[in-house]
């Protein structure tokens, strides 16, 4: 099955390509993958990666190797809302492990897995996301939530569609 890039994604890729010198379109791979992943509700398929490679005139391996290297790209099917809880030292010192336990219990899933209804992807243990003074911190669909309490976590998770 082949995948056709939407006009929105093509515009997005062109917008990024224009920032780099002629012939350096490979620099737009990361932005292109962000754009297609967003359209696919949080993960990349091989067909999408192939389409990006074809559009940028690159060997497919140059797209695959980027998609698998960076932690913000998912190359298997995951839930549509991404929840990432930082557990690095600053957050750990302020109770991140309790937040993880609470979320795992509430969602009935484990770190790195998605809920059965496909609503939430609880990302594998997240590394420092640079909001350490507001620890504990989590990122939900790229938005930061700081100084978390279990009550706030409940409210945020309950509000996801």
């Amino acid at each position: 099955m082949s995948y056709v890039l939407t006009d929105h994604v093509k515009d997005e890729i062109e917008h990024w390509k224009s920032r780099f010198p002629e012939g350096r379109q490979r620099s737009a791979v990361i932005s292109a993958l962000h754009a297609v992943q967003h359209e696919n509700h949080g993960y990349l398929t091989a067909e999408q990666m192939n389409a990006v490679a074809e559009y940028l005139d690159l060997p497919t391996i140059q797209v695959y190797e980027v998609a698998t290297f960076y932690s913000m790209f998912q190359t298997r099917e995951v839930g549509r809302n991404e929840v990432a809880i930082c557990t690095n030292v600053s957050c750990m010192l302020r109770g991140a492990d309790d937040i993880v336990d609470h979320v795992e219990q509430k969602l009935g899933t484990k770190l790195g897995q998605s809920t059965e209804d496909g609503r939430v992807f609880l990302k594998q243990e997240e590394e420092c996301i640079a909001a350490c003074c507001g620890a504990p911190v989590m990122m939900v669909n790229h938005k930061y939530y700081e100084n978390l309490t279990k009550e706030q976590v409940d409210e945020i998770l309950d509000g996801l569609d």
Partner: peptide
């Protein structure tokens, strides 16, 4: 690319 654990001022 502020990523050093504990660091959040460039943000």
């Amino acid at each position: 690319d502020e990523s050093e654990p504990g660091t959040c001022h460039d943000r």
